[in-house]
């Protein structure tokens, strides 16, 4: 069954950080927390490539496996979310995550001291949709409104894609066919394995 996925096309990403501020804007993410960030490899040299990185919402999410209090769950659409009421801020998930997605505020943000925070695929969390509690702890819920993550929707060069995995693949495949090359869907096999 199809599931939600992110894909960053390194041939297109220009490290403009539009995705980063779109995320900050949509969820009023506080100073010091970066649910999404852009990394550049081989900076300043030929072969320089940039990638936008956040929680990839993995199929077999390592964070879920290591969490000592089992605060994670996965929606029917494959979105990996967590419950801040259960989270104890231990940091195991940070060590397990291949993408460095989990963030920890140093003081009270998003529901208390040290609770882990991460990308929700713009789908809120385990509170009533569009409730104040959901907003305060997890940010806005675009998915419930029929909208996709704002980072991808606002991407300057449409490098970052988010949505139904099959659709993401189709768009990316068409693009690669048109241009005749692609540097691979970075992180895909890591995040989604063969299960897709």
């Amino acid at each position: 069954m199809a599931r939600m996925k992110f894909l960053c096309d390194a041939e297109r990403c220009i490290h403009c950080s539009g995705c980063v501020t779109a995320c900050k804007n949509e969820h009023e993410v506080p100073w010091g927390i970066n649910r999404r960030r852009v990394v550049t490899l081989n900076d300043g040299k030929p072969g320089q490539r940039s990638l936008s990185v956040a929680c990839m919402h993995c199929s077999d999410a390592p964070c879920m496996a290591v969490c000592p209090v089992d605060c994670f769950y996965q929606t029917n659409d494959g979105i990996v979310l967590h419950n801040k009421d259960l989270c104890i801020g231990c940091g195991y998930c940070f060590y397990a995550c291949p993408f460095g997605a989990p963030q920890y505020p140093s003081t009270g943000n998003f529901g208390g001291r040290g609770k882990m925070d991460k990308c929700t695929f713009c789908s809120g969390g385990p509170e009533e949709d569009h409730s104040k509690a959901e907003l305060e702890k997890y940010g806005r819920n675009r998915i419930a409104e029929g909208k996709l993550p704002l980072c991808a929707e606002m991407c300057a060069t449409k490098a970052l894609l988010a949505g139904d995995g099959d659709m993401v693949s189709t768009i990316y495949r068409e693009r690669v066919m048109a241009r005749g090359f692609g540097s691979g869907a970075a992180g895909w096999s890591h995040a989604y394995g063969k299960k897709g």
Binding site: D70, C71, Y73, T75, N76, D77, L81, N83, D85, L86, S123, G124, G125, P126, E127, E128, D129, I143, A144
Partner: peptide, 8 residues
């Protein structure tokens, strides 16, 4: 075992 989330 936390609160259940709404599914779309």
């Amino acid at each position: 075992k936390g609160k259940a989330d709404t599914q779309i």
